[in-house]
């Protein structure tokens, strides 16, 4: 992403993000929430999509390692054959929101699925996520479409 040179980590933004997701979901419905997050994938993550298309899963591996390291998440990255696996044992966003008393959107973790799909599908890749929002854990997998 563009801010790689200097990273300012303001974790209260996770609470604001959650508020925004809940606002759209409650006021305009799940379809609107989905459309909004698809737009985020398309507009915000366009550079990552292009990198994934050009460089393959290494681009995603670097992205997740960077993000979860600066956010101080408990995670590991590995490969199962041709699949990149991101195992998040403690999600930094959920952890921060719980610690600081921020409301967590009903469908908060759905944003991971929707944004990941938006990035991957545009680049010719597939992905999956199994999440446990209550406990802030998830397993995300990424692989190239056949």
């Amino acid at each position: 992403m563009a801010q790689r040179e200097k990273v300012n980590v303001h974790k209260d933004f996770h609470g604001a993000m959650s508020y925004g997701i809940q606002h759209v979901y409650e006021r305009y419905g799940e379809e609107a929430m989905t459309a909004f997050l698809r737009q985020v994938a398309h507009e915000v993550y366009r550079p990552l999509t292009e990198k994934l298309r050009k460089e393959g899963l290494k681009a995603l591996e670097e992205h997740w390692r960077h993000i979860f390291t600066i956010e101080e998440g408990d995670f590991d990255l590995s490969y199962e054959g041709d699949k990149l696996v991101l195992n998040v044992r403690q999600c930094p966003a959920i952890h921060h929101m719980k610690t600081h008393g921020y409301a967590i959107a009903d469908k908060y973790c759905e944003h991971t699925r929707l944004v990941n799909e938006g990035i991957c599908h545009a680049a010719g890749y597939e992905c999956s996520v199994e999440y446990d929002q209550e406990n802030g854990r998830c397993v995300q997998k990424f692989w190239k479409k056949n």
Binding site: H10, D12, F13
Partner: peptide
Amino acid sequence: MISCTEFIWT
């Protein structure tokens, strides 16, 4: 996860 470092764009 959308990182808090990507929040402004989001």
